[in-house]
Structure formats: C-alpha cells, structure tokens
C-alpha cells in the first residue's frame, strides 16, 4: 500500500504510542460499475483484526462478502471495543461516489479497518486490514484493492443468492446483468482470502457463461481511495 502523507504544520505532542484521535474519513468508490454494499469502518486494537490475507474468512466476513450483511462484523467490532462507523453511506456506495464519516477513537484503538462487499460479485470485497492510525495530525491518502473471500465459487450467476453458502450473486443494483448463464465455474480453488481476479463477464445478455457484462462489470485495482484526516 502506498501512503502519501501531507503533514500538518503543527505536530501533536504525543506522550505515548496510544492516544485518542478525531478522524475524518473519506471513502471513494473508484470503479465505473461496481457498487459497495454498506461499509463497516472500525478503529480497533493492534492485536485484533477482521480478516487477514492468506487466511480463511470468518463466517462474519463471509456473510459480508457474499451478501453485504455487516451485522456479524459489527458484533465482532463490539467484542473488540472498537469505535465504528457502520453503513455511513446509508446503503450502497454507488460507482464513482464518495462518502465521508467521522470517528472518535479511544486510546487503545490504534488501527483502522474497512470492509464492504463488491456488488455484483460472488464473494468479492473491498478491504483495509489494520492500518496504523498516524499519531501526527495531517491528511493521509491510500488506495485499496478488491479481495476474494475464498468462500464461494465465482460462478457469476445472478440468482439472488446472498446468504452465506448460497451460490450466486444477489443482484446488480444497476440492472445491467444478463440472464440464464450456465456459470463460469463451480469451484473455488483458493479458499483463503486473496486478491480478486476480477469479474469475467460475457457479451451475451441471455445465456453464455456469465450473467455479468464484460464491458460493464469488470474492474482493475485499485477500487477505492481512502483519505484520513487526523485532527
């Protein structure tokens, strides 16, 4: 992750590594055609996390990645005594739109994580795992990639299936999907959380392998830009 820091003129006097902070957080969906389902943004202790790349997804992360349901992750956040902003966009964050939220963090909550499902995908999500909140006041920018929870085959069939373990994609909020696809694959070989290989799509509105449109529903990383202002 590349972090570009624009440092404020006045550095805060910091007596210890742990400190409370007032954060303004902006999340920008950079994609042309992929929605973010309700976001969960949490500041939490350094020894806690919601997911790790290369590890298996929790059931709660799976529920978010397959169906956009963050209630389980919110319970995890509460268990960590995290400071969270849940669903700041009050629904979907549409392609190329931006949401801003503020977070007051307790001194123990030194790291920031963020998650939302990428829709339409089978189990893709935009994620940030445990970014250390800088102690110095300033504005920080970074970019996020799309990940695959590794919990569901990327069949790219829009079936309404959003419950954990149910095959298929819930929907395309923009309604640009096709129908009657035979399915891209029925296997998920890598069951660990990994970088999403992207949607394949096809050029058939009826039939074909995929219900997704290959000129509408693909993306390249990064998928999000995050700006954090430490006040």
């Amino acid at each position: 992750m590349k972090t570009i820091a624009t440092l404020g003129a006045v550095a805060l006097a910091v007596s210890s590594l742990s400190h409370a902070a007032e954060l303004d957080i902006t999340v920008q969906n950079l994609t042309q055609g992929i929605y973010f389902t309700p976001l969960l943004i949490s500041a939490h202790p350094s020894d806690a996390s919601f997911y790790k790349l290369g590890e298996m997804a929790s059931g709660e992360l799976q529920a978010m990645a397959e169906g956009g349901d963050i209630s389980g992750l919110m319970s995890i956040a509460d268990g960590m005594s995290a400071n969270s902003s849940a669903n700041p966009a009050e629904g979907m964050l549409a392609p190329s739109t931006t949401v801003m939220t503020s977070l007051s963090t307790d001194s123990a909550n030194t790291h920031l994580s963020l998650m939302a499902m990428l829709l339409p995908t089978n189990d893709g999500f935009v994620g940030l795992d445990s970014w250390e909140i800088p102690s110095e006041a300033g504005t920080y920018h970074f970019y996020l990639n799309g990940y695959d929870a590794g919990t569901e085959a990327n069949d790219e069939m829009i079936t309404g299936g959003g419950a954990p373990g149910a095959a298929g994609i819930p929907k395309d909020p923009a309604g640009k999907q096709g129908m009657n696809a035979t399915g891209v694959t029925d296997m998920e070989t890598n069951m660990m959380i990994h970088v999403h290989r992207g949607n394949l799509g096809d050029d058939m509105m009826d039939g074909g392998k995929s219900d997704l449109n290959n000129t509408v529903h693909r993306w390249l990383n990064p998928v999000a830009k995050v700006t954090v202002t430490v006040n």
Binding site: G33, L200, N214, L220, V223
Partner: peptide, 19 residues
C-alpha cells in the same frame, strides 16, 4: 455513464467480446 472513473480494462476478442 457520463462520469470519470477508473478504467475497468479492455475485454478483447480473445477474452469474450466477440465484436
């Protein structure tokens, strides 16, 4: 879409866009 976004990439005839 009439807004600027990150490019989704090209598809190509070799990857499923027959036209």
């Amino acid at each position: 879409v009439n807004y600027v976004a990150m490019h989704p990439g090209i598809v190509s005839m070799d990857d499923g866009l027959s036209t």
